Amino acid sequence: MPIIAVDAIEQVNRTGYPAPHDAAVAGRWYRRLGEAFGLRDFGVSHVVLRPGAASSHRHWHEEEDEFVVILSGEAVLVDDDGRHPMRAGAMAAFPKGQANGHHLVNESGQDCAFLAFGRPPAGPCHYSDIDMMWDGAAYRRKDGGGF
């Protein structure tokens, strides 16, 4: 059935980030809607940021476009150009290959929910503020070393 009952899909807060980088996303909960409904060309995730949580570390993808839509609550988009408040209905796009590290942070006292659209990361992902990158298969240090 094409109608999505969001609450019927498992909500998790797993991350592949190695310690100590995993702490920033401990309050990020998500549901992989695309996977649950068999979408293959792009992914859709329903994400909830608890107060104080970040969506990720600031990052940019070489080979993956990203698009987010705030559903409820508020978050601050932090990118190379500064801090940008976002509320329900606000949208942001991050074209692949543009080296503009970005993430969302919930600095409010209420949950923030948004939809994130993209495709499963296959190529390199660069983290702007920490010594970490995704090489398409695993997280590693920028100098090539492991965690």
Rank of each mutant, 00 (worst) to 15 (best):
V69C: 12
P2K: 15
E107D: 05
R14Y: 13
V12G: 12
V12L: 07
H84P: 02
E64D: 13
R31Y: 10
D131G: 12
E10C: 08
D129E: 14
G123I: 00
G145Q: 15
G118D: 06
F67Q: 13
G144D: 03
A113G: 04
V47P: 09
V12P: 04
P95C: 05
A138I: 00
R58F: 10
E10T: 14
G38F: 01
P18R: 04
H57D: 04
I4N: 13
G109P: 10
V68M: 12
V69T: 14
P85T: 08
A113Y: 03
F94V: 13
L33I: 15
Q98P: 01
L33E: 02
F117I: 12
D79H: 04
G123Q: 02
K96G: 08
H46M: 11
M1F: 11
Y139A: 00
A88P: 09
A122K: 09
D80C: 10
V48P: 03
I9Q: 07
M133W: 06
C125K: 04
Y127L: 02
G82E: 10
P51T: 10
L33S: 04
D111Q: 14
W60T: 09
A99K: 03
R141I: 00
G97T: 07
T15L: 06
H103C: 15
A138G: 08
A24N: 05
R119P: 00
V78R: 06
R119M: 02
D65Y: 14
H46P: 07
A137N: 00
A90S: 15
R14H: 14
F114I: 06
I70Y: 05
A88R: 06
I3N: 05
D81A: 11
I70K: 12
H103S: 04
G101M: 02
P85N: 03
A75L: 00
N106F: 01
G145V: 05
S45T: 08
H61D: 06
G144S: 13
A53Q: 02
G123H: 02
Q98A: 08
A19L: 07
V12S: 09
A93V: 08
A26N: 07
